[in-house]
């Protein structure tokens, strides 16, 4: 099955590939996996005043998984945490023209965004409610 041009573009020129230090106070890290295929995806957000100012990803998986996470980092940048929470995997499917067998890749990217946000919020709760 052929990948769409957009998937190939993200695969060849991934946006925001890499990592932040996950120890950083204003970084949220989401690590998720797809048991269907063993893909692992890490998505990180850097947050200032409830707004995502930067993002990184690292994905070990197929082209669709890489493209989905690459696109996800593009989309979250500039959004508030609440706005980023509303990103749906179906939007990723549409943008990348993913075939049905690759829908789980977009689900993974959505999960990664939500997990990263949850991780950031947990960190903030931990540091503000503390001693």
């Amino acid at each position: 099955m052929a990948y769409s041009d957009k998937v190939i573009d993200h695969y060849k020129n991934p946006r925001n590939a890499g990592s932040f230090s996950k120890e950083e106070e204003n970084v949220g890290t989401g690590v998720v996996g797809a048991p269907e295929c063993g893909d692992v995806m890490k998505l990180q957000i850097k947050v200032e005043n409830e707004r995502i100012v930067d993002a990184r990803f690292k994905t070990f998986g197929c082209g669709s998984a890489i493209a989905s996470s690459s696109l996800a980092t593009e989309w979250v940048k500039g959004k508030t945490l609440d706005e980023a929470m509303t990103i749906q995997n179906t939007e990723i499917v549409k943008e990348l023209s993913l075939p049905p067998v690759k829908i789980h890749c977009s689900v993974l990217a959505e999960d990664a965004i939500k997990t990263a946000i949850a991780d950031y919020r947990k960190k903030q709760d931990g540091s503000s409610g503390g001693e």
Binding site: G33, P35, E36, C37, G38, D39, V40, F60
Partner: peptide
């Protein structure tokens, strides 16, 4: 157990 195997097989 089955889930873990998929990730290890991928490696």
């Amino acid at each position: 157990n089955l889930n873990c195997e998929k990730y290890l097989n991928r490696l």
